[in-house]
Amino acid sequence: MPPAALPEIPHSREWYARLAHELGGYRHPWTRVLSGPDPELTFDITLDSLLTPHTRVLEAGCGHGPDAARFGPRAARWTAYDRQPELLELAKSHAPQAEFHLWDGRGEVPDALQGPFDLIVSRRGPTSVIPHLPVLAAPEAQFLYVGPHLDVPQVPQRLRAAGWQLVSEWRISVLAHAPTWGDWLTRCEFQGQEARQEDWDAHAGPLGMPYREARYVVMAQRDTES
């Protein structure tokens, strides 16, 4: 049986609250079959390589806390925020060693998030943290981001405006399949797209409906030449 239909407005506060209650976090509610490595592995490997017992980390848009639980114990301090109270409650239970705060990334930085931080990370999350980097970051800090499209133009634009520069940039695309019509319907609803039966009938094969899982990964640091 496919997962229950999500609300009509994807990525609204009500939509995220329902994800928290029905799926136990910010998770993709459809089955997917990848034809290659998960496109977020580049982010995972890079994040892991940047952590030391002295690293102070700020995570923007932490969701239900999977990164805080997985990577947080390797850092000196893992502080995270999200705008969704339901997700933060889950995050606190998943990563009790981390600090979690309610914030939407707008306006002034709350006192509890002042830092300074050595590493600021955002997985598929808000780019609204970027203008705050000069306030949040230690002098030699780095910023690591992964987004759900091959091009997220506001990331380099906002980094330049904040006085930061790209150090590394990756674009990863992997062939994937949604194996059933129910999975494809759920994916389209999740993405705010229309799922049409005629498209499924025309393009779905033995493995299901093909599509691309794409990610844009960026690592940046303060521009010392500006």
Score class of each variant (00 low, 15 high):
139 P>Y: 05
114 Q>S: 14
96 P>N: 03
55 T>N: 06
21 H>D: 15
78 W>K: 07
22 E>F: 02
124 R>M: 15
92 K>M: 09
36 G>H: 07
30 W>Q: 00
112 A>R: 15
136 L>T: 03
128 S>T: 14
32 R>V: 13
45 I>T: 15
76 A>L: 04
69 A>K: 00
96 P>V: 12
8 E>A: 11
116 P>D: 03
33 V>C: 09
118 D>W: 13
128 S>R: 12
83 R>A: 14
124 R>C: 15
71 F>I: 06
102 L>Y: 06
105 G>A: 00
77 R>E: 11
97 Q>K: 05
140 E>T: 13
116 P>F: 01
125 G>S: 11
66 P>F: 12
101 H>L: 06
5 A>L: 12
135 V>E: 00
14 E>Y: 02
103 W>R: 01
3 P>R: 08
60 A>V: 01
46 T>I: 15
126 P>A: 15
113 L>S: 00
31 T>K: 09
81 Y>W: 12
133 L>T: 10
35 S>I: 10
59 E>P: 10
61 G>F: 01
102 L>M: 09
31 T>M: 06
5 A>W: 02
117 F>H: 03
66 P>A: 11
107 G>C: 07
122 S>L: 12
17 A>M: 04
112 A>G: 12
98 A>R: 03
61 G>Q: 01
120 I>Y: 08
33 V>Q: 14
132 H>P: 05
123 R>K: 15
98 A>C: 02
28 H>F: 12
11 H>L: 11
103 W>V: 07
34 L>D: 09
120 I>S: 05
102 L>I: 06
120 I>T: 04
85 P>T: 04
133 L>D: 05
102 L>C: 00
97 Q>R: 14
121 V>W: 11
62 C>Q: 02
37 P>G: 07
128 S>A: 14
127 T>C: 07
88 L>K: 02
82 D>A: 05
126 P>Q: 01
110 P>D: 03
45 I>M: 15
134 P>L: 08
93 S>I: 13
80 A>Q: 06
105 G>H: 04
57 V>S: 03
94 H>R: 15
20 A>G: 06
57 V>D: 04
76 A>K: 10
120 I>F: 09
92 K>L: 14
57 V>M: 02
79 T>R: 06
69 A>Q: 10
20 A>C: 01
82 D>I: 08
14 E>A: 13
114 Q>Y: 08
71 F>V: 05
111 D>P: 14
136 L>Y: 07
22 E>G: 06
68 A>S: 11
65 G>N: 07
30 W>D: 05
120 I>M: 03
126 P>E: 03
5 A>M: 10
29 P>R: 01
38 D>A: 13
129 V>D: 04
80 A>F: 02
102 L>P: 00
7 P>T: 05
124 R>T: 14
54 H>E: 13
103 W>F: 08
28 H>T: 08
129 V>E: 02
72 G>A: 02
141 A>I: 08
4 A>R: 11
52 T>E: 08
52 T>G: 11
4 A>M: 10
23 L>H: 14
